[in-house]
């Protein structure tokens, strides 16, 4: 009788701790995406200043600058899904990278301290976002492993937990310090 009671108590403790563990892992995924979100917002705050500085010193394509401004407005508007936020960030990143390379042809701009500060802050934010994405992917992998492997799969079925997709890193992120090239002219 005592043995049965011990087994039941152990099974309960194990079940509760596993259940809590799954919830914790799921929350970690949510938190990890929030961290990306915060860093993206921080980066978008740089955009108006960056665009204005480039405008003052160059006759860089007005269309591209307008596009960057519009993309920033969309990002700031909110109501976007996680995937939409990432897609939008990819587009903004691509447009700004193109702009950064083009401004190499403008010595006055390259000598501007404000622009140099913005450029290094932008690069810093890119690396921080890459780190936040890697953190998100680590949390997702941890969560996916927990819900796909026995006995987590049983609890996951009861809770209707589904696997979450990891964020694919871009080639630039894998190279990681490619932004350095922007400074080497």
């Amino acid at each position: 009788m005592l043995i049965v009671a011990i087994i039941i108590i152990l099974a309960l403790v194990f079940g509760i701790s596993f259940y809590n563990g799954l919830i914790r892992k799921r929350n970690q995924v949510t938190n990890a995406f929030s961290a990306i979100d915060v860093m993206l917002k921080k980066r978008y705050d740089l955009l108006p200043n960056l665009v204005e500085t480039v405008k003052q010193y160059t006759n860089y394509e007005e269309g591209v600058l307008t596009k960057i401004t519009n993309l920033r407005s969309q990002a700031a508007a909110g109501q976007l899904s996680n995937q939409e936020k990432l897609d939008l960030d990819k587009q903004i990143g691509k447009a700004v990278s193109g702009m950064m390379i083009s401004v190499e042809n403008y010595p006055d701009l390259k000598a501007n301290q404000n622009f140099l500060n913005l450029q290094s802050t932008w690069t810093e934010s890119e690396e921080q976002i890459a780190a936040a994405r890697r953190n998100y992917n680590a949390s997702v992998t941890n969560y996916n492993n927990a819900i796909m492997m026995f006995p987590g799969s049983i609890f996951a079925g009861m809770l209707s937990y589904q696997p979450v997709a990891v964020i694919e890193n871009t080639v630039e992120e894998r190279q990681n310090i490619s932004a350095k090239d922007l400074f080497n002219s």
């Binding site: 961290a35 921080q128 780190a131 936040a132 953190n135 680590a138 190279q175 990681n176 310090i177």
Partner: peptide
């Protein structure tokens, strides 16, 4: 800090 650790320890 999980994110900061990855900011320092990049793949490269």
């Amino acid at each position: 800090d999980q994110i900061e650790a990855r900011y320092i320890l990049t793949p490269a």
